[in-house]
């Protein structure tokens, strides 16, 4: 059979108790319109639930939306679990309320991209497309 186009598959996830999902939903819609296949996790997910979805759906990217300021511990935990499960090939990006000074820390943890609130949508889309190409 003919070879089909590789589609970028993304999980947009809301870890933890925070319920502010306007941003996550906006990004999900924008990525869909950019031709990607998007799964939205829904609210109040634990890291293990997010990992489970990422495994079964075999997504290329996990986008975390975090507004409470807990982005460092949450991301740290996720990255650790990715390694434990042997799926560290999945690229992680983080959005939400993220101060500039925390961006290097997140990158150190292995995050591929950080998009604080107010980042233009096209920047996020371009990042994903470029990262997918080099992967």
């Amino acid at each position: 059979m003919s070879e089909d186009k590789k589609k970028i598959k993304i999980l947009i996830a809301k870890p933890g108790l925070d319920g502010h999902d306007r941003g996550a939903k906006v990004v999900a819609q924008a990525l869909k319109d950019a031709g990607m296949e998007v799964i939205y996790s829904g609210l109040h997910k634990t890291i293990d639930q997010i990992i489970n979805i990422a495994i079964q759906e075999d997504v290329d990217f996990i986008g975390l939306s975090i507004m409470t300021g807990a982005h460092i511990p949450i991301t740290e935990k996720l990255m650790k679990r990715l390694k434990e499960k042997g799926i560290e090939d999945k690229k992680v990006f983080v959005g939400g309320v993220i101060p500039q000074k925390d961006i290097p820390k997140l990158k150190e943890l292995g995050v591929a991209g950080v998009f604080p609130g107010g980042t233009p949508l096209r920047e996020t889309i371009e990042f994903i497309k470029n990262t997918a190409k080099t992967a």
Partner: peptide, 21 residues
């Protein structure tokens, strides 16, 4: 899949919360 953008929002899973857990 959207015929316009070729993208898709895969939303069924969210309705399967009990099964997912």
């Amino acid at each position: 899949t959207s015929t316009k953008t070729d993208g898709a929002l895969l939303g069924d899973r969210l309705r399967m919360r009990d099964a997912e857990n």
